[in-house]
Design a protein around this nucleic acid. Sequence first.
DNA 1: CGCCTCCTCAAGAGAACACTTGAACAGTCG
DNA 2: CGACTGTTCAAGTGTTCTCTTGAGGAGGCG
Lengths: 223, 223
Amino acid sequence: MANRAAKDALFDGFAEVAKALANGRRAELIDVLAQGERHVDDLATEIGQSVANTSFHLRALASVGLVHTRRDGTRIYYRLASDRVAALWAGLRSVAETHLEVLDDLAHAYLGDRSGLEQISRDELARRIDAGDVLVIDVRPTAEYTAGHIAGARSIPIDGLARRLRTLPTDVEIVAYCRGPYCVYADDAVRLLRRRGRQARRLTDGFPEWRTERRPIEHGVPA
Amino acid sequence: MANRAAKDALFDGFAEVAKALANGRRAELIDVLAQGERHVDDLATEIGQSVANTSFHLRALASVGLVHTRRDGTRIYYRLASDRVAALWAGLRSVAETHLEVLDDLAHAYLGDRSGLEQISRDELARRIDAGDVLVIDVRPTAEYTAGHIAGARSIPIDGLARRLRTLPTDVEIVAYCRGPYCVYADDAVRLLRRRGRQARRLTDGFPEWRTERRPIEHGVPA
DNA sequence: CGCCTCCTCAAGAGAACACTTGAACAGTCG
DNA sequence: CGACTGTTCAAGTGTTCTCTTGAGGAGGCG
């Protein structure tokens, strides 16, 4: 090998990027940021860590260019650097799902039993939206809805779903969606709705996948 | 958060896969294995490490399911678990290329000046192969050619190119390819050929990308 | 201008990682 | 069956990583 040191350094560079994803808390951050930008305090609560530690992890992500920041008043908002990062995160999940044996157990421990949980694909949901015979609810936290949501979806964060049940029409099927296939919010929503006798399914994956396919989205605060 | 411990464990699971890629030597192993299966001794030479250390890294990759093994005689061959792993590796490179600032410098230090190096896309190469007015040479080590190569390509490992120059026709353009965009073999081949007055270009990327697109490939030892 | 909020930095403890060396193991082939 | 080859394992050392605590900015708002 003519130039071993330079080759090693180059591949160490690629490894730096992998290293940024090689921590569960940073992976959670990426997963949340794939929904849209958020500020540090918020992210700390989201991943259940101290603000200092969250800031530290965000710096680790920023130092290899995976996230960018902007300031708004006293707050600093972080966002993914590009769709490529979201795609890399999706690829990582896909590989883990396919090849990492323990992942099934881990997923089952977190998600619980999904056998009675009916799902709907992005394609079918798009058709149903066009037909107009479906109510799409976004059960993620409000901040994520504001940062971007499926066009026409209504924001009903999972915490407020039970209370707001009576405001939902009874004559159409309800489709709930959240962050992605490993997010429990939509699961919880569908289970709750079905217990109350509603016709409900969850979108198989979540908002980032919808956006990545360039399907119609909207931004802005809930009505 | 209802179930913080289970969620953390799940994301630690995803992070395990990233951790497997989070080392320069393991990244080199993935890059080589994306060409096709290889045995441990061979891989150790390829990445410039001891056999023991290489075996250790391969175990790290195997423990998260990224690589599989098979035995043939006294040798054990490692291969990527699936195309998804190759795709993840490609995604990682793409993100690093786009977002990691130092990568340009690292790449330049290893690859040298590419300004005078003419490239050809996969699409165009496919058309030229159909037209039959091009000679495609595979300048990777023989083991990689044997494990799989572009249909119709001739195996001329870079070490033997100068010696075998006279066996190449002078009336067609030559296209050299190797492992991918960060591989120097094809660069060296094109530079050598052009110094000798031949018309030569390199394929922009390499064999794995060609295979991923399901373009025609062949297996087997050089003629 | 000074206080306040939000975020980052620095130091430190405990755990995990990378690579080396030398020994042990597992098949295979004569 | 015994020797050999190719591979893995185990122990050890120096380095890097994670998270905590408490102090130190940066910028806005009263």
